[in-house]
Every structure is written in structure tokens, then in C-alpha cells.
Design a protein around this nucleic acid. Sequence first.
DNA 1: GGTTGTATGACAGTCCTGTGACAAATCCAC
DNA 2: GTGGATTTGTCACAGGACTGTCATACAACC
Lengths: 224, 224
Amino acid sequence: MTAVLVIEDDDRIRLALLLALEEEGYAARGAATAEEGLRLQRSEPADYVLVDLMLPGLNGFECIRQLRRDDDVPIVVVSARDDTHDIVAALEAGADDYVVKPVAIKELSARLRALRRRARALTAPVPVQVIGDLEISPDAGEVRRAGQPVPLTRTEFRLLCELAEHAGRVLSRQQLLQRVWGYDTGDERLVDVHVGRLRQKIEAEPGNPRHLVTLRGLGYKLQR
Amino acid sequence: MTAVLVIEDDDRIRLALLLALEEEGYAARGAATAEEGLRLQRSEPADYVLVDLMLPGLNGFECIRQLRRDDDVPIVVVSARDDTHDIVAALEAGADDYVVKPVAIKELSARLRALRRRARALTAPVPVQVIGDLEISPDAGEVRRAGQPVPLTRTEFRLLCELAEHAGRVLSRQQLLQRVWGYDTGDERLVDVHVGRLRQKIEAEPGNPRHLVTLRGLGYKLQR
DNA sequence: GGTTGTATGACAGTCCTGTGACAAATCCAC
DNA sequence: GTGGATTTGTCACAGGACTGTCATACAACC
């Protein structure tokens, strides 16, 4: 699941950002100071970092520089100051983007996706997601179970990727129909059938699934 | 020298941007319409494209989509509209950044540098690729299998290089058509045919390929 | 026990891919 | 230029894989 770290000293703003990001499907965590943020990112790296510029103690620019020393993580500055000098300095320090508060969460989310798209097109290693004994590589079009390739059909593969991207979160049949099949409406049984086929291939005991579990009345969830 | 293409219909703004960019050390060229911009980018690719959204004829969003189809070039939208909906739509269409007019040239330049820093990672071309018992030398225009030169036609060679450059990743038929043939659109069977011919030459058992594999519904992939 | 929701096997239609044939385009030596 | 060889793109088709629907059986909840 895509993780975002928010470094922002104002409690209200930080919380609002965290909530909004969760709503968008990210796993968001916060830090109130640069020091805490750096520590967090080192111990448990997020996929993106959002950082405010005006922080107590170590300021935002320095925070960016230090982040950048260790890590290629995309950094987005979220600042109240709409000032060319600050923008240039932040980008020079190593930030990838700079947005001005207040920022629409949809815009922020779109900017994160744009960064990911750019980062993904370029990174040599193919990203792999690990769920239990499953390794899922969306870019390689490949799934391995205990190291062995599992032959999946396109639909099964897309379904699994969609579930993996939001691992640990329930996805309703409607959401899956929408995201995997692009159907605005349709027979929800269809999802059941494909989930069943997927289980045959990725679960040790398809009748008693450990990863791809049903949440009665809600939908399906992929858990570690 | 870094080249920038500016697609903007307003002559005054375009000229101002071009001048400012030259001042910043870029080789800048302009286009007044999306169509002209696309043509220019195809014939003489720039390293960055700046594009306005409100263009006569083909609009900015469509322009971005078409640029993105051919090319991984970083695209920055320079628009007068500061509207979340537009921003999200432009980024979704494939833009990398979105700035609102009037924009400080220093900021724009810093954003371009940030994009370049991010893009650098992968642009280093590999001299020789080894995939299984295949050695691919894009520069030398040569492919060896188990040390023996393999005679490939130009198209086969380009196809193989494209696949090798993204070894381990699925490339869709559309992507291959665009990158190898430069087609915006075309018959995807064409790819099949050439993949088939390529397999005859580089695979021990063309009917049961080990490297150049089909991912049904997704495309082709070259794996080690 | 009744009701609701979920799993699964069978099946027909559809979609996808590989391939051989062929004509147009290109190359190349003379 | 000419003629032949090579390469390229198009097409049609066959076989196989995949998908979605349905009916039925099963499980969970009240």
C-alpha cells in the first residue's frame, strides 16, 4: 500500500492532510518536526514525503536536503508561502514539487500520481509488492508464489493488482467492477467468479483462503 | 544544450517565454498551435515541452495525450487557469507539472531542473545487454547468441533493443508500435508477426519461447 | 428454519495469438 | 536504371485461451 509521510508542525493542518490522504487510499503518517520526520523516514520509509517549510528547529529546506541525502523518495513541499524565492530554493534543495496551502486534496493526489508515473517509467528495478508468500510485479506482469511464477489471466492479474494496491483494505464488488472492469454497473457475481478462480491459483487452500478473504456484505480484501 | 518547446497561441506570451528561457540558457522554440507543436516535437524532439491549455483547434489536454503517446518528454502546463479540475485533468492526461500564469521564469526554470534531476536516473544507455545467452549491443548494431552473430533485420533489431531496454517489463503492442515504428495507431498484428520472426532467430524453441514471452492480454516481455 | 449472501462447475460465445501466404517497398550489386 | 533478393506490412484463418452467465450447492446470519 502506498505510504505518505507528512511533516508539518501545525496539528490541525497535519491531521486534515492525513485524513484526506487516507480518504484517497494512502497509508498516511505524520511528524510534527523535521527531526521526527527524518527519523521516521529512516526507520520506516514512505513512498512520498510531504513537507512544510516553516518548521520549528530544523527548517524545511534543511529537512529536504537531509532527506535527499539518504533517499530518492519524491518530496512535495506544501507551504503557505507563494514566493518565487522559496519555491526555487526548495526545488534546488531537492524537492520535486511545491504546492501552496490551502491545497485541494485532489490536486495533491494527482501530483503524487504524476510523480509516481515519472519515477516508475525511469527506475530500472521493477517494483515488487510482497503479500505473504506472494510477489506481485505489476510492471513485469508477473506474480510469484514462493518464488514460482503463477500463470494468471489478464483479468485475474488486474484484480490481484487492484487488491494489492489497497492491501488490508476492503474493496466492494462495485469498486472492483469499476476499477478492474471499468463497468459503471454490472453483475456483482462476476467478481465472485474471478475471485474464486484467483484463489485456486494463489491460495494454498482455496476453500479456506488466508490472503484473499471475503468480508461478508462488504467485499473482498487482500491481507498479508 | 537543453531544448525547450513552447506551445502557446498568444504571441506576446510565447515570445516572452522564449526570450526568458533563452536568457536562462535554454534553446527555446515555439509553436502557436497544438498541431504545429506535435509536428515539431516529432521532427526535432525537445527535452521539455511547455504547453498552454487553451489552444485553438486541438486543445491542450488532447495535445498532452498525443505528446505522451509518442514520447516520455517532461511536459509542464503553463495555464492562466488556477482550477483544481483543470490541474487534475492535465496531470491525469500525462503532464508532469502545472504552473499558473504569470509565472516567474526562475520558478519555471527550477521546476524544469527538478524534473530533469528526476528523469536522469534512467537515460543512461546501456552499452551491452546480456539476456540469457543473448548479447545485445545497441551501439554496435549487433546481436550474438552463444557468441555467434545473429543476422537480424533493422526492424527486428529495433524491436529487440526496445524490449531489452525494458527487460523484465511488459510492453504493450501499442507501446511497441509507438516506440519501434513511430506509429500513433496501427494494426497490432504487425507486432505479433515481427515478434514471431524474431523468435525464429533468437529462441532455441521458437514455439516455446524462454526469453521473448507473450503475456496474454498485456503484451510482450523480454526476460532473463 | 428461513433468508441472505457466497462459492463453484459447466458452457457457449468471444477474444487473443501465432502463422502462412502474399504483395508492396526497399535494398543492392551490376 | 535493371533485376533479383530481402525486408516489410497486411490479411485471413485456425486453434486455443479467456470471459461472463447461469444454475445449483453451500455457508453465514437472524
